[in-house]
Simulated scan of single mutants.
Amino acid sequence: MIEPRQWKALWLFSRTGKLTNTAREMYLFQPALSAMMRKMEEETGVSLFIRTGHNRISLSPAGRVAAEFAGQLPDLQQTALDAIRQTSRSLGICAPGIRFYLEKPGQLKTEENLQGWDTEMLEDDRDLEAGLDSGRWQAVILHLPPEAGYLVQPLFTETLFLAVPNQHPLAQKDSIRLADLAGQNLLLHTGIGFWNGFVRSRLADAHFASIDDFAAFQSATLVGAFPYFTTNVVPWTIPDNVCILPIDDPQVQATYYLVCQKKDAALFHHLCQVLYHQTGTSAVYPAAERKSS
């Protein structure tokens, strides 16, 4: 199969007419370029070049036809890429709770939902914005409002809570502050998007038992040895040997924003119509609840 690099060399040669100039444009030595040309002829099964004495070479009639197509390939590639991106349905997100929110029964206004969309999670909002600009995603959901230049709609608010084993000293509190967790041993699931960096940056003195696998993390929470973080959108059932404590710091609430480029206004308004807009989702855990062991 003829490689894109070979097509490019053929097209450049049709423009320059000289191997030396083409090799310079391709950052190749001339013998390597000559070998590339011969391989291209082997791939097509026809003579693309006319070789004469004194190391002179020119395009054959077949070579001129091939070079004409080679010149069209960049535009065709971009057309194909645009068409692929238009049919692709991908969403960049900054935290896993967004998936729970989108998949929540009754969360979608109509039968038309986001189940056909691929979601990809990154921790940094800036990386998500860059992916939106490059066309990697058609929309992103951020935990901070972006700078001007985008279409933005608030969606819902997620609140961080601490799940504490009933026998743990912290279980005697009605609520806690992040400062109360200094020096504590905590379970931490690493796949929590931006919350991972948030927790680590604000609890530099805590000791984390980090677990990558979600199933293994769930199993570890059942043991009830260490506190761990949960939120008001996490769908799992809290074990009976654990109580949920509100965290008093205001930073533990994150409002999520649907963001699209302005040129994608039709898509943005469609997504706004499909999703319920909740800027203040009520907490599943409104107050600390101690359960008997």
Rank of each mutant, 00 (worst) to 15 (best):
M1C: 12
R5M: 14
A9R: 01
T16L: 11
L19T: 06
E25V: 07
M26P: 13
A32H: 14
S34A: 06
A35N: 15
M40R: 08
E41R: 04
T44N: 00
S47F: 03
L48C: 03
F49Y: 15
S60Y: 06
P61H: 02
V65R: 09
A67T: 12
E68F: 13
A70S: 15
Q72D: 02
Q72Y: 06
L73S: 01
A80T: 10
L81P: 09
D82C: 08
A83P: 04
R85P: 08
Q86C: 05
S90N: 12
I93Q: 07
C94L: 06
A95G: 05
Q115A: 09
G116S: 11
T119R: 11
L122M: 13
E123C: 02
A130V: 08
A130K: 04
G131M: 02
G131H: 03
W137N: 03
Q138M: 03
V140R: 01
H143T: 13
P145Y: 00
E147C: 03
Y150E: 06
P154R: 02
P154A: 09
T157Q: 12
E158V: 01
A163H: 05
P165F: 00
N166E: 13
Q167C: 03
H168A: 05
Q172S: 13
Q172G: 13
I176V: 13
R177N: 03
L186A: 04
T190N: 02
G191N: 08
G193D: 07
W195E: 02
R202P: 01
L203E: 11
A204N: 13
I211W: 14
D212H: 11
F214L: 13
P227D: 07
Y228P: 05
T231Y: 07
N232E: 12
N232K: 04
W236P: 00
I238M: 08
D240Y: 14
D240W: 10
D248R: 09
Q253Y: 13
Y257D: 00
L258G: 01
V259F: 05
C260L: 08
Q261F: 05
A266C: 08
L267G: 00
H269K: 13
C272S: 05
C272L: 03
Q273C: 10
S282C: 10
A283Q: 09
Y285A: 06
A287P: 10
E289T: 14
S292D: 04
S292R: 07
